[in-house]
Structures are given as structure tokens and as C-alpha cells.
Amino acid sequence: MKTILKLAAVRIRITLRNKTFLFFSLIMPMVFFFLYGSVFAKGNPQAVAYLMGPVMSLTVMGTFWGLSMQLVTWREQGILRRFRLAPISPSTMSCIKSLSDETMVVFAPASRAAFA
């Protein structure tokens, strides 16, 4: 269990160090949110809330997409292969992946909500 949390934490840390990921899943949707918010909603709270929904789901989808792509890259670069040499089963690995991904997915829109 300790291993799982540790690996999940490392995975999240690596993801946060990835500038491309940060830009596309955190910063860009936020920029769109404020852009649309000012252009279409013009500060009307109800309209802003209406825009919030689509932006949120977009972020969730984008984050999942980005993280899955990262896993594919790990596989292609032989990184997963190195992990398979250690006594850690593929099912544990995918558990960790879902765990850390979900944390990220929750974190991404949550940071948005906090800003809004």
C-alpha cells in the first residue's frame, strides 16, 4: 500500500513537471474560460456558471487524454518494461495509474473552480 501511494505521488510529481501537460490541461482551458466569460457572459454570474460546465468537462477529458498519452509514451520508451522487472504486478501499475490520474483529473477542474 505504501508502495502504491509512493508510486502514485511520483507519477503526479512527474506529470506536474511536464510543461506541455500543464499548459494544455491547466492553463489553456483557464484562458478560454476567462476569454469566453468576458466576451459572452460579460460578468453575468449565471452565464459564467453556464460556461463553467463545458469548460470543466473539457478539462476532465483533456486531462484523461493527456495522462493516457503519457502512459503510451512510457510504454514506447521502454519505461514500463523497467517497472515490470520489479516485483510489482501490471494490475498494481494500472491501479496506480488510475489513482494518480483521478487525483490529477479532480485537481485540474478544482483549481479552476478555486479561481472562479
Partner: peptide, 20 residues
């Protein structure tokens, strides 16, 4: 051997030490 680019050396070896 390939590891994630943004993994630090100490993190890498510490992480793997935790598996055994």
C-alpha cells in the same frame, strides 16, 4: 534502460528500492 525524463536520480532509486 529508460526512465521518465523528469524523474530525479534519487527519486528513481528510492522508488525502486520501495518495491522490494
Amino acid at each position: 534502460t529508460s526512465l521518465p525524463d523528469k524523474l530525479r536520480v534519487s527519486e528513481a532509486i528510492g522508488l525502486f528500492a520501495g518495491f522490494y
